[in-house]
């Protein structure tokens, strides 16, 4: 089963990359773009079929390694074919 983990910075955490992208977008004429936040996507392939078990495993992976919960939030989604 394929899992998509979206990791984003928590509100209040400085995102200098997002700010640089925003300023570039504004310079390109997208003046209405008032904020940009960046993040990352991690795609996992788990050899398991039980959705509950897969979600449980993915959550554990996020807490143990994939996400720094001091500064990041995450969202887990199952990728359906």
């Amino acid at each position: 089963m394929k899992i998509i983990v979206n990791v984003s910075l928590k509100e209040g955490v400085l995102d200098p990359e997002g700010q640089a992208i925003k300023s570039s977008l504004n310079n390109l004429g997208f003046e209405h773009c008032s904020d940009v936040r960046t993040g990352k996507q991690i795609i996992l392939n788990l050899d398991q079929n039980c959705e509950t078990e897969v979600l449980k495993q993915a959550k554990k992976m996020c807490e143990v390694l994939l996400v720094n919960t001091v500064i990041e939030n995450y969202e887990i989604n199952i990728l359906k074919d």
Binding site: L14, P16, E17, N68, V70, I71
Partner: peptide
Amino acid sequence: LPGSLIRNKKL
């Protein structure tokens, strides 16, 4: 140690 070390402000 607590906290976090993030990207330098000026990238």
